[in-house]
Amino acid sequence: MKKFYLKYVLIAFVICSFILPKTIKAETETTANLEKEHLHLYSEAVILVDAESGQILYEKNSKEKLPPASITKIATAIYAIEKGNINDLVTVSENARNVDGTRVYLEAGEKVPLKKLIQGLIINSGNDAGVAIAEHLSGSVEQFAEDFNEFLQQEVGVQNTHFSNPHGLYETEHLTTAEDMAKITQYAIQNQTFRDIFQTSELKWDGETWDTTLINHHEMVRDKEYEGITGGKNGFVQEAGFTLVTTAERENISLIAVTLNSMYSEQSYEDTTALFNYGFEHFETDQVLRNEKYTDGFEHSYLVTEDTSFTKRQGETIEKDVSPSGDLIVKGEDQRIITEVELDQVENKEKNEQMKSEIVTNEDVVNQKREEYHLSIIVPIAVVTGLFVSLLFYFQIRKV
């Protein structure tokens, strides 16, 4: 009876060992999950994201598809920087010169460096610069839209965005979400050229027919009254309302705030300020560093495979445990799972190296034995053959 009982206990243990790692993974949270304060926000959709970890710190309707207006140009700018040569001279077409909306007053036939067009696109929100960029990179705005969307989906990883043009003028299918715009911005600010342009408050502009100083249309970038602002882009068309993307950083955290569809410009800035205040007051970024070593309950050792950022509450003490599946689980004070980090088992590495070494050693031994075996056969055969040939030679001489 005891054997029968033990048999089923063992079966149950094996089943649990397969289920437990999956259960832990299913409970992983993607946000810092602070009991959210109720922020009074005017915008239809907003999101606040840690720029390092990508964790969502606050959101409202962040997956709702809405027209973005000129914050589209963030995506156009990083696409142009990565897919074009910023030193190329771009010839402005009649089509680019005649585009509606905000312009940097390019003239047909004018030759402008691609980098300068990107600056005019972001700082002065030049729609004509956007069309000139699109035609230079893809030959037409229509082809650019296809190439552009493929880039955003495949390389940036957005899921709910479709852009029909490079500038954000309203079209029915030109839509994005606050969440996707945060992803695009997080991707873009990893590029130094983009960051330099994104934070420029003013730029001297010498055009063929327009000499001026471009003043950034984003008030928080231009006025620098809010501590820590590192860049931004604003937008407006009637159908989209006022839209805003802003980045800011202080000692312990870098943030991205996106607001979509405010009725008034002031409301989008008030919402952005409220989001930043909330983020800076409650959160900080921490890291699990590459090659940090951890041990599980069975004394198995693991190494972190790459630097991983995560967001925690200000001053929060965290716990780090190795799961049965071999991942590092980072937990907050209330035992919520903040993030999971991939680990590499040290013993496996050592065993693999040892096995490789043993294989090499075994091959050497086999080769040596093979040589010894060959020698043990070849030498006697050579001796016998030599004696036989000598005897034949001897008898031939005697006959003579």
Score class of each variant (00 low, 15 high):
residue 71 I to V: 06
residue 209 T to G: 02
residue 73 K to Q: 10
residue 176 T to I: 02
residue 305 T to E: 03
residue 250 R to F: 09
residue 268 S to R: 14
residue 193 T to P: 13
residue 177 T to D: 06
residue 180 D to S: 06
residue 301 S to P: 06
residue 316 E to T: 11
residue 147 D to Y: 09
residue 119 Q to F: 04
residue 140 S to P: 10
residue 128 D to P: 02
residue 391 L to A: 14
residue 241 G to N: 03
residue 224 K to D: 05
residue 281 E to V: 00
residue 31 T to I: 05
residue 13 F to D: 08
residue 347 E to W: 14
residue 243 T to Q: 05
residue 169 L to K: 02
residue 42 Y to K: 04
residue 47 I to K: 03
residue 251 E to I: 02
residue 67 P to S: 06
residue 239 E to F: 03
residue 360 V to E: 13
residue 125 S to P: 04
residue 90 V to I: 13
residue 8 Y to M: 10
residue 11 I to F: 10
residue 280 F to H: 09
residue 63 K to H: 08
residue 29 E to D: 00
residue 103 R to E: 05
residue 309 S to L: 03
residue 378 I to C: 07
residue 124 N to H: 12
residue 315 G to L: 11
residue 46 V to W: 00
residue 293 K to T: 14
residue 168 G to A: 12
residue 291 N to R: 01
residue 200 T to Q: 08
residue 247 T to S: 14
residue 341 V to W: 07
residue 364 D to Q: 11
residue 255 L to K: 00
residue 170 Y to A: 10
residue 302 Y to F: 14
residue 113 P to H: 01
residue 56 I to C: 11
residue 149 N to R: 03
residue 163 F to E: 05
residue 16 C to F: 14
residue 98 N to Y: 04
residue 118 I to W: 05
residue 316 E to M: 06
residue 199 Q to L: 02
residue 315 G to A: 08
residue 278 Y to M: 12
residue 99 V to D: 01
residue 64 E to A: 10
residue 74 I to Y: 01
residue 259 T to D: 08
residue 101 G to H: 05
residue 100 D to S: 11
residue 244 L to G: 07
residue 73 K to C: 11
residue 90 V to W: 00
residue 263 M to Y: 10
residue 381 I to T: 10
residue 290 R to I: 14
residue 359 I to N: 01
residue 323 S to E: 04
residue 129 A to E: 13
residue 103 R to M: 04
residue 245 V to C: 09
residue 330 V to C: 04
residue 225 E to L: 13
residue 61 N to Y: 13
residue 22 K to T: 07
residue 272 T to S: 15
residue 81 I to F: 12
residue 252 N to P: 10
residue 16 C to P: 00
residue 263 M to W: 07
residue 196 D to T: 02
residue 241 G to A: 08
residue 79 Y to A: 01
residue 59 E to G: 14
residue 321 D to F: 09
residue 98 N to L: 07
residue 27 E to L: 15
residue 196 D to V: 04
residue 76 T to D: 06
residue 217 H to E: 07
residue 255 L to V: 04
residue 17 S to N: 06
residue 276 F to V: 07
residue 83 K to Q: 12
residue 109 G to H: 05
residue 73 K to R: 08
residue 380 P to G: 13
residue 243 T to P: 09
residue 220 M to A: 13
residue 206 D to N: 15
residue 190 Q to R: 15
residue 11 I to A: 13
residue 60 K to L: 12
residue 13 F to W: 01
residue 172 T to A: 10
residue 39 L to D: 09
residue 189 I to D: 03
residue 206 D to L: 13
residue 96 A to G: 13
residue 276 F to H: 06
residue 152 L to T: 01
residue 252 N to L: 14
residue 52 E to V: 02
residue 400 V to G: 12
residue 358 E to D: 15
residue 228 G to Y: 02
residue 282 H to L: 00
residue 391 L to K: 14
residue 349 K to Q: 12
residue 45 A to G: 13
residue 327 D to G: 01
residue 182 A to W: 00
residue 147 D to I: 01
residue 33 N to L: 11
residue 298 F to I: 04
residue 63 K to Y: 12
residue 386 G to L: 05
